[in-house]
């Protein structure tokens, strides 16, 4: 039992140490990409509303990771970088959708299997927001980033982040029934 405990402690320490090491190894880049692939897809899907575009945006971000020459300070740094590239790529893609279609595209069916109906209701409401607000909602509620961190990712001021979040919450409250926003 003691050996197992000691071994577990060693593993935990090694994992923690790995988190803090600079990420320079190319194979580690691919490992990080696989760890985060679904989250990147989720960000892009919520922003673009299109399965195809979301997959392309996520793939593009991962490609940029794999050809990147500079190391990362940590795995967390790499993850944040990936999210930032994906979110901004998806936003750009979304703006191009508007340009070429001439009107706001309806969100494609993302073929999502939710665990229960409330999840579907909430996501449907979020998808009615503009893409910029959806990006902020994902970063705040899904990733638990702070206002300041979101501002850095989207390169907007914290007050602009707060403004978007406040407006989005207001709209969501109007759309959603129930006590979703009571603590």
């Amino acid at each position: 039992m003691e050996n197992t405990a000691a071994s577990d402690n060693k593993l935990a320490s090694a994992a923690a140490a790995k988190e803090n090491f600079r990420v320079t190894d190319r194979s580690e880049f691919e490992e990080i990409a696989r760890e985060n692939m679904q989250r990147l897809y989720a960000h892009a899907a919520v922003i673009t509303g299109s399965k195809q575009d979301a997959e392309d945006a996520a793939a593009d971000a991962i490609y940029r990771l794999l050809i990147r020459k500079k190391p990362f300070e940590s795995r967390e740094h790499a993850k944040a970088w990936l999210i930032r590239v994906t979110v901004n790529g998806a936003l750009k893609m979304k703006s191009r959708q508007r340009r070429f279609s001439g009107e706001e595209n309806a969100a494609e069916n993302l073929s999502v299997e939710f665990e229960y109906p409330e999840q579907s209701e909430v996501m449907e409401a979020v998808m009615k927001l503009d893409s910029g607000s959806r990006a902020v909602i994902m970063l705040f509620y899904f990733e638990d980033y702070s206002i300041k961190e979101i501002g850095r990712i989207l390169k907007i001021s914290p007050s602009a982040v707060t403004s978007r979040l406040t407006r989005a919450r207001g709209r969501l409250k109007e759309m959603l029934k129930g006590d979703y926003f009571n603590e």
Binding site: M37, Q38, L40, Y41, A42, A45, V46, K51, A54, E55, A58, A59, I62, L110, V112, E113, F114, E115, E118, Q119, S120, V122, M123, V126, I137, M138, Y141, F142, L172, L176, G178, D179, Y180, F181, N182
Partner: peptide, 19 residues
């Protein structure tokens, strides 16, 4: 409740493509 529900909902958005 929104936070919990949305987190779960976003976690259901997955792709089967090997990006």
């Amino acid at each position: 409740e929104f936070n919990k529900t949305f987190k779960g909902a976003a976690g259901c958005i997955v792709t089967d493509r090997d990006i």
